[in-house]
């Protein structure tokens, strides 16, 4: 508890730094591109169009049974790419700020935190693409859309926890960067982005897949988000529990691991 309080005080003192770092990343990302921030919307939108065409023509059977495939797909894409981007960038964040960390004292967790926050800001912009897709496909707007904040915020906490662990690992073993890349690709196929595991025909292998996929926290976040936005239902208690607990556990483990090794970072960079 005392530890938590110290973290909070530190955070309060350096909140402007966090804000400025996010601002810097944002400026640098879009500096000198003609469309600038519009790419945050255009990119997922174009990806969505490509994938909808692919999955509704070439591999038609997959999209069967899903009400509004475009919206279903783009929610999966957006949330997964948020998780993917947040964790991957957070992983290299401590290493890439080595020049600064060697010269000035700054609480080190600010760098993973900043990268995950930046990814969230990006993700929020991308939600404009979701709105566009919903309008175009005439998807009904449910009041339960507000509840989508819950899976989004818990996913943020979850990504931060994972990001902290990865950032720590990356300092000592650079290999993790390549490994994680492979891992997230595998994870993507088990996050049910372009298919509905519950809607597949039952066979032993599908049952196994359903079981397997339910151990994937990212799948839970995506499903909860889809439930409230697309189906207009409330969050189930299982979703509330799984999303919340995964987030908090990841964050606590992340903070503990990070804290344990952070004093050694400067010696290994």
């Amino acid at each position: 508890m005392k530890l938590f309080k110290a973290y909070c005080q530190d955070f309060f003192r350096y909140r402007y730094l966090l804000y400025n770092l996010v601002g810097r990343d944002f400026k640098l990302k879009y500096r000198r591109s003609v469309l600038g921030v519009i790419w945050s919307v255009l990119n997922p939108l174009l990806m969505n169009v490509v994938m909808v065409i692919v999955f509704s023509t070439i591999m038609d059977m997959r999209s069967a049974g899903i009400k509004n495939f475009s919206v279903y797909l783009i929610i999966g894409q957006l949330l997964f790419s948020f998780f993917n981007e947040a964790t991957s960038v957070a992983m290299g964040s401590v290493l890439s700020s080595a020049p600064l960390l060697r010269k000035v004292y700054i609480p080190k967790y600010i760098f993973p935190l900043e990268k995950v926050t930046f990814s969230l800001v990006n993700c929020l912009f991308s939600f404009i693409a979701l709105i566009i897709v919903m309008v175009v496909t005439r998807a009904p707007l449910h009041l339960t859309v507000i509840l989508a904040l819950y899976p989004l915020m818990t996913l943020f906490v979850f990504s931060l926890g994972i990001g902290l662990i990865l950032a720590t690992l990356a300092v000592f073993f650079r290999d993790i960067m390549h490994l994680w890349n492979v891992f997230t690709t595998a994870l993507m196929y088990f996050s049910a982005i372009f298919y509905d595991p519950m809607g597949l025909q039952t066979s032993p292998s599908v049952l196994f897949l359903q079981k397997f996929i339910s151990f994937n926290p990212v799948y839970w976040y995506i499903t909860a988000f889809r439930g409230v936005v697309l189906d207009g239902r409330l969050l189930t208690s299982a979703e509330i529990l799984v999303c919340g607990i995964c987030g908090i556990v990841a964050l606590i483990v992340g903070l503990l691991v990070f804290r344990k090794y952070q004093d050694k970072f400067v010696l290994h960079m």
């Binding site: 350096y14 730094l17 810097r24 400026k27 010269k103």
Partner: peptide, 29 residues
């Protein structure tokens, strides 16, 4: 700390932006 002048400057940002960034690195508002 003035361990090295300009630690924490981002070379791609302008001086104006860097003044704000570096100031907050040092904990200023």
């Amino acid at each position: 700390p003035l361990i090295e002048l300009g630690a924490g400057f981002d070379m791609d940002l302008t001086a104006r932006e860097n003044i704000y960034l570096n100031g907050t690195v040092l904990g200023l508002t």
